[in-house]
């Protein structure tokens, strides 16, 4: 499984993007390790009800998941624009409204507001896109729309919310994100882990074990949660700074 293994030096032309470091205060250092535990506990706690009736349970789980993710990004991660990134890069007409407040307000608000904006963008923009992707990969077209949408929302909150928080919505930056051109870090690891986890989550669906949890979309969501934790861990530790290579 090589997309995440090859170490490289700097890409040839552009100066390398540096991996995102979490904030250097003690709370951040501590909470970044607690967060995956909380996420997994939340999911484990809700698992039974998700299996029993996916739609309301997934919907209910979405709220605490959003809160946990917001807490995580606000406590541990540098918001977009807080570091050396040139200002021009993120000023696109459509996004101005959302990004601008994060730049104007400082202090705690400077973190909480971008976090909420990230939540908004990831629910409103990323979720439908992910739902479409899920349908392309074989999710039912005519039925189970609520299931698929909620599954997409969970993946989106897990994978894209932190990324939007640290990278904003700049087109060129997102091209690099989609193209796997950024060096791996904790946040990027979340995305890759969640996506791979959700991909692998499809494996047990066809098996004839007749288990409740095989129903749509439980395995996908489970895969995404597990992948998130593994990806975050791997991205923050031994894969940190590595570059993905296709050729």
């Amino acid at each position: 499984m090589s997309p995440t293994t090859t170490a490289t030096e700097a890409p040839k032309v552009k100066p390398p993007e540096t991996p995102i470091e979490h904030l250097s205060n003690d709370t951040a250092k501590l909470y970044t390790h607690i967060h995956p535990i909380l996420i997994l506990s939340l999911y484990a706690f809700q698992f039974k009800s998700i299996v029993a009736d996916p739609v309301p349970a997934l919907l209910n789980t979405l709220v605490p998941l959003g809160i946990l993710q917001i807490t995580y990004v606000a406590v541990c991660l540098p918001p977009i624009g807080s570091d050396v990134a040139p200002a021009a890069e993120k000023r696109k007409p459509g996004e101005k409204k959302k990004i601008a407040p994060g730049k104007l307000v400082s202090g705690l608000n400077g973190k909480i507001i971008p976090a909420f904006i990230s939540l908004l963008v990831s629910t409103l923009a990323a979720t439908p896109l992910l739902m479409l992707t899920l349908i392309f990969f074989g999710a039912p077209i005519t039925t189970h729309h609520a299931h698929t949408l909620l599954c997409a929302a969970h993946i989106s909150l897990l994978a894209t919310l932190p990324l939007i928080y640290v990278h904003g919505v700049d087109g060129e930056r997102w091209r690099e994100i989609v193209a796997c051109l950024l060096p791996i870090d904790e946040v990027y690891g979340c995305l890759i882990g969640t996506v791979l986890g959700a991909w692998l989550g499809a494996v047990p669906i066809p098996l004839d074990w007749d288990r409740e949890w095989q129903k749509w979309p439980v395995t996908i969501v489970t895969g995404a949660y597990l992948g998130f934790v593994v990806g975050k861990l791997a991205g923050g530790t031994f894969l940190k700074g590595k570059q993905m290579k296709f050729e």
Binding site: F136, F137, G138, A202, P206, F246
Partner: peptide, 21 residues
């Protein structure tokens, strides 16, 4: 048939990524 659909879409997704590169 469903597995093949999954694989073919995965290939498509990978080439989207690769095209962006």
């Amino acid at each position: 048939d469903e597995i093949l659909l999954h694989f073919l879409c995965t290939f498509g997704a990978l080439t989207v990524i690769s095209s962006f590169r």
